[in-house]
Write a protein that binds this DNA or RNA. Structure first.
Lengths: 210, 210
DNA sequence: CATCTGATGTGTACAGTGTAAACATACTTG
DNA sequence: CAAGTATGTTTACACTGTACACATCAGATG
């Protein structure tokens, strides 16, 4: 019997199941716990207790703890893409728009340190998990590349005069430098005004697009 | 009885104790294990087994696992300072020297990913541990600042024309961007030639010193 | 209706972790 | 020699992620 039939059956069914599925409640609860206390500090047992189910129930919906977190990250970063597109839709010169977008990304990462940490600060042994993490960053990278291309076009630069992929990757590295530094050493380091730092850094890596 | 006396006594003693102290053997063995397999994958029990002592013996010499690693990191990064000073002592224009130094730092981090990870990629709740980690990076930052200052002087820039601390911190952020990105997503990401990337990034953040 | 099946939850158990506490031994010093 | 201290071991505890076997129950099928 095909799996699709069973799925359809479940969807057609209108019996009074809990209004919001356990799967979603788990993800929602875990999101809060992870964000507040960090991935490693939160055990599956505590998530279960907070949700109101047994710890093993979580495994019916997520293969393991890492999958649970990765699923949360995917959701988080898809919200970032929304923010990004809406920012990039506002009018103005391409360069200004892209600089604001980069700012948006940096600020988003800093305000979601745990999601950033697990997605971008955990060394990935090559494998399927690594591929999913790369995939999470892909939409952002696409928009970055498009932004660079548009800036180049607006300034009349040919593809011989500027390496678009390289420029995009440099901006990417700058983003991760800012996010990583400010997340790990945020409060402990004598930063020279973080806000101005972000702006200067963004200016520096987009200067060749002026 | 003062502690200093006991220490002196131990040093004066020439009895046939093991030629290299257990403390050093632990650090040396743990260094290798951490570097090869990563901090979290190596348990105190395995370190003990590899050294040839009981796991709890380690605690006589290091307060806990984190202290052990931190001690290893301090040693590692002090070797980096040596490399850095010897590189910076070579002749040539200040700008060229500084660019080579930045390259040295980046390459050093990439070839010691586990030390980098624990020192710079683990969020630090403000406290004494965080202070020690900041202290580890301080000598590097001092040399960076000096390098920037010398470049500025060589080009005749006054302190009104260039914010030395800000410039140094931007370079620092670029270093961590490169190191972090290449360490976490090194093999998994379609990098546009990492070596050229490093060079371009370094050029970008030192352009205003040309 | 009775029966069967698959999805979803629970309880128990296991192998592993870092490390606190009590104990054993050997070396230094009064 | 006696006392004390530095250094090591053994045992035990509280915790982790999760494999496995079982219970329950909704819907499909005879």
């Amino acid at each position: 019997m095909p799996v699709a039939d069973k799925l359809r059956a479940r969807i057609r069914r209108d019996s009074p199941r809990p209004r919001i599925s356990l799967r979603d409640r788990i993800r929602q609860t875990a999101r809060g716990l992870f964000a507040r206390e960090g991935y490693e500090s939160v055990s599956m047992r505590r998530i279960g207790a907070a949700v109101g189910c047994s710890p093993m129930a979580i495994y019916r919906h997520y293969q393991n703890k890492e999958e649970l977190l990765l699923s949360i990250c995917e959701e988080t970063f898809s919200r970032m893409i929304q923010l990004l597109d809406q920012e990039s839709a506002r009018p103005g010169p391409a360069l200004e728009r892209m600089r604001r977008c980069v700012r948006t990304i940096v600020d988003f990462h800093i305000s979601h340190p745990n999601h950033y940490k697990v997605t971008f600060m955990t060394p990935m042994p090559p494998g399927p998990v690594a591929q999913r993490k790369v995939a999470i960053g892909q939409p952002v990278m696409d928009r970055l590349r498009d932004g660079v291309r548009e800036c180049a076009r607006e300034k009349g630069l040919t593809e011989d005069e500027i390496d678009i992929e390289m420029t995009a990757q440099i901006i990417r590295v700058a983003i991760h430098g800012l996010a990583g530094s400010l997340i790990t050493t945020g409060k402990c380091y004598p930063w020279h005004d973080p806000e101005r730092m972000k702006d200067e850094m963004i200016l520096t890596v987009t200067r060749q697009l002026e």
